[in-house]
Design a protein around this nucleic acid. Structure first.
Lengths: 347, 347
DNA sequence: TTGTAAGCGTTATCAG
DNA sequence: CTGATAACGCTTACAA
């Protein structure tokens, strides 16, 4: 227990970590034996095993996962690609994915793209270079389709939440977007609304299209459509612009997601309109802030957690066998949450 | 362009991907040359290079990152460990970290622990087994200290947002928690409040302690303290319990984070108290929902993005040189956001 | 019960 | 300008 003599370079340069050979040498056995002590893949005499374990502890030996994976041909890690980590919808989805991965003995790494094609490429590179065994893809930026297409048949990929147009043959787990739109349509119709503004997401995203279709079909009234991009700012901009050139001329707004609904809410408030007295607003997703907002937002609850969990569990079934998943679709139910932002269309 | 003949097993089993040897053989060169064509590390005749590139494309060859990393001794990927991905504070922090990593040519993988020691262990294993080159650690669950301690000197780790008690010698980037607490104390005092309830985080977390210290010092009034766990439910529970046994007897509540403040808000509302007329409430973090809440929450804005960005950039400076970072502290300024949840203490 | 040697897919070194 | 060969650190036949 005498104090260690001071060594100038004690801290900074990382010493080469102990390898299996170092352990073997120090324990007087072959690397093979060390390997088997650690993996339990074949019997080792208790005496030898104990000695090896002692050395392992003393040296702080941890097997290099890279070498192990290289040899095994797989890393036991998959990725989850999402466009926007601060959208709580994706956060929930990620939790589901993580739980599923964890349960099945896989690591899950989150890849956040910020809707940036560069980053998406980079992360997809991880699967092409086999740094990860598979990928749950929950982004939906339109340009990604062609890239995905090339990967789909060659690597294990599952689509979560968003289906990608023209990508048949994929494993996909998604909420029932169409039914969600329908629920909103029925709700507004029942409240007596006959003219609605619909704020959609980008054309190329199927989920938005499905929501819109379901809505239009069930609403059976007049629908003014404006195309946004799922961001709060676009909801604000779209409504403001409409307001400026002569008013909305609608009694209800259906935004394709909660974020855009918030933007609409702000624009409406700034224009001196009150929700739901003057106009009703409905969102989609039921993110956390929806119930906290003022007024609390009527919206469609998506089972984000389940979408993530299902997509991941399904994918791993194939990944673990070294297979690429065949086409299959898992549609999860949605639920309308009626809150304070919708009211009858009187006046 | 004749249609490919149907093959029964076309889809499922993943064929062994092309290796550098396959490319070399098909191009009639050595693996060395292929490697150099791709890396540009040494001149290759344009003719040979073109031929190699042709084969690379035709075979869809992508270098195996595992092999490359094994050889290089590093993966150019670091991890960011966070406790709760659906807390937008961490989401912002993650964005900052991601941007910094991206700028410096590193990949960043998010490790979400859900405050679960199991998962934390698992993710820390990634750095011990050298699957990642470094880790930005933004969790603060108390039991983690000893584990971290063992890693700290041996692997490149940076602490973000939360310092860990007893862990000296770390690279750490954090908001000025103490100053934040002070700002709240001054604000409430100026409004005439003299008795406040303080909802803290777990004892072991230094950030919470710093906030509390700053607050108590500046408030100079009576402070009732209750220990929570940074989750919404605990804010609700603590306030409810107090309310049940005889009222709060305070004119203001200072919660150690916004989530707990929301919990308090709900509890207060259920008890028929209105904010800020009957009682003022202040949070900490300034997460997205804070401004959306009703009433909008007065809170301390933390530069989450900058914390993530700074911690990561600093860490990478050392990681890229294969060094373990020495102790250093980066304190980032905070800002009080006065909103609708605080008012003068009249009545 | 244990060890030797080959191989996973790269890149660096050295040689031509 | 190009190629053998070794080495990165591990696992796994095959052998003893």
């Amino acid at each position: 227990m005498t104090p260690e003599p001071y060594t100038a370079d004690r801290q900074s340069p990382v010493r080469r970590p102990a390898s299996i050979k170092d352990v073997a040498a120090a324990a007087g056995v072959s690397p093979t034996t060390v390997s088997h002590v650690l993996s339990g893949n074949r019997p080792v005499s208790e005496e030898t095993a104990a000695r090896v374990r002692g050395v392992v502890n003393r040296l702080g030996y941890v097997p290099a996962s890279l070498a192990r994976s290289l040899q095994a041909g797989s890393t036991s890690v998959i990725g989850l690609l999402i466009p926007d980590i601060s959208n709580t919808f994706f956060a929930e989805l990620a939790k589901g994915a993580e739980d599923a991965a964890h349960d099945l003995g896989y690591g899950l790494i989150l890849c956040n793209t910020e809707f940036d094609a560069d980053r998406e490429d980079r992360y997809l590179g991880m699967i092409r270079s086999r740094f990860i065994d598979g990928m749950v893809y929950a982004s939906g930026s339109p340009p990604s389709r062609r890239r995905l297409e090339a990967l789909m048949g060659k690597f294990p990929i599952a689509l979560a939440d968003e289906e990608v147009e023209g990508l048949e043959g994929a494993l996909i787990a998604t909420a029932d977007h169409e039914a969600g739109g329908r629920l909103v349509g029925e709700h507004l119709r029942a409240l007596g609304h006959r003219r609605a503004l619909m704020l959609t997401g980008p054309r190329a995203l199927m989920s938005g299209t499905a929501r819109a279709n379901g809505f239009v079909r069930a609403f059976q009234g007049e629908v003014v459509e404006r195309v946004g991009d799922f961001k709060e700012a676009s909801g604000y901009r779209l409504v403001t612009k409409l307001l400026e050139k002569g008013g909305l001329d609608c009694t209800a707004v259906f935004a394709a997601n909660d974020l855009m609904a918030f933007g609409a809410l702000t624009a409406l408030r700034e224009a001196g309109l009150s929700v739901p007295e003057d106009i009703s607003v409905v969102g989609f997703d039921d993110i956390r802030a929806a119930s906290l907002a003022h007024p609390p937002l009527t919206t469609v609850h998506q089972p984000a957690y389940d979408v993530g969990r299902t997509a991941t569990a399904q994918l791993l079934q194939y990944v673990s066998r070294g297979e690429v998943p065949p086409a299959s679709r898992h549609t999860l139910p949605v639920e309308l949450k009626v809150r304070g932002s919708t009211a009858p269309a009187d006046r």
